[in-house]
């Protein structure tokens, strides 16, 4: 039981990293970034390349997400900022176009084959929990996820930049009237969101199959998480990710037939009872 829970929680961490960026970007910029899953995918591929070149998992973990952050910068600076004032449908179309383009670009460069790099030696062991064996890597993932959560909290709640971000998320117009350079802030927030997705992808590289379609798989789950937790709420994204992770883990154990549907059922339930999500803010 406990073992299954830990597996579920560690799986939840990939989701959390993607959902955190998605929610942050939506909360501050009011843009739903469909391409966020693709950034996750790029994180995995870039980390894989970095691993092949350097031979070090740690270098891969550092380089992969940073390159994704750079891609995020190019997306925001080159494209997204042109459609902030356009209707939402245009923003969705643009980010969806990125999904298609990035998927095909990855196929073109890496081919459609599934790639599975090895787990780094330092993390390839396992620990005994009760009567089950849990790979050390799962614990590592859990630690990184928790650390990122803590880091984001400290960043947003305790730093000056975080304060300006919170103010801008709450009332963009007033923040600008006070002198906040919103467009520059948006660029940084998007870069941060992209980095988080890239980190998730890089972390998933050794244990999950890398494939051009991995972005779509996770973006749908991330949307479920973000809607469940409340759009724009990081706490909601965190709790939502854990909830979905646990649901999958225990669902697999107790009712494998429904496992895939459980997340959506949870989301439907939350939407009926609290349409603004668990930690979202009721609007209007």
């Amino acid at each position: 039981m406990l073992f299954q829970g830990l597996v579920g929680l560690s799986e939840a961490m990939y989701l959390w990293l993607v959902a955190a960026g998605l929610s942050l970007i939506f909360g501050v910029m009011r843009v739903l970034n469909f391409a966020h899953g693709s950034l996750y995918m790029l994180g995995a591929y870039f980390a894989w390349v970095a691993f092949r070149v350097s031979g070090s998992f740690w270098v891969a973990l550092l380089v992969g997400p940073l390159v994704v952050a750079a891609v995020g910068w190019a997306m925001e600076f080159g494209f997204l900022r042109r459609v902030y004032s356009a209707p939402e449908a245009f923003q969705l179309l643009l980010t969806f176009a990125f999904v298609l383009i990035l998927d095909d670009a990855v196929k073109l460069v890496f081919g459609p084959v599934y790639q599975s790099p090895p787990t780094p030696a330092a993390l390839s062991g396992a620990v005994l929990i009760g009567h089950s064996v849990l790979p050390t890597y799962h614990l590592f993932i859990l630690g990184v996820g928790a650390l990122v959560g803590l880091g984001l909290w400290v960043f947003l709640e305790k730093t000056s930049f975080g304060l300006v971000i919170r103010a801008t998320a709450a009332d963009r117009e007033m923040a600008r009237a006070l002198g906040v350079r919103a467009s520059r802030l948006f660029t940084w927030v998007f870069i941060l969101g992209a980095w988080l997705a890239g980190l998730g992808g890089a972390l998933s590289m050794p244990v999950r199959a890398i494939s051009p379609g991995m972005g779509e798989l996770i973006i749908i789950e991330a949307f479920v998480v973000v809607v469940l937790g409340g759009l724009g709420s990081l706490r909601g994204a965190f709790v939502g990710s854990l909830l979905i992770g646990l649901l999958h883990a225990y669902g697999l154990l107790f009712m494998p037939v429904f496992e895939l549907a459980l997340g959506y059922m949870a989301m439907a339930l939350v939407l009926i009872v609290r349409p603004w999500g668990l930690f979202g803010i009721r609007e209007g």
């Binding site: 930049f161 709450a170 923040a175 002198g179 350079r181």
Partner: peptide, 16 residues
Amino acid sequence: FADLSAAENLRVAMLA
């Protein structure tokens, strides 16, 4: 800014 304290509301203006 409803979720920020009064002091933080002023700080935003400085930081901005």
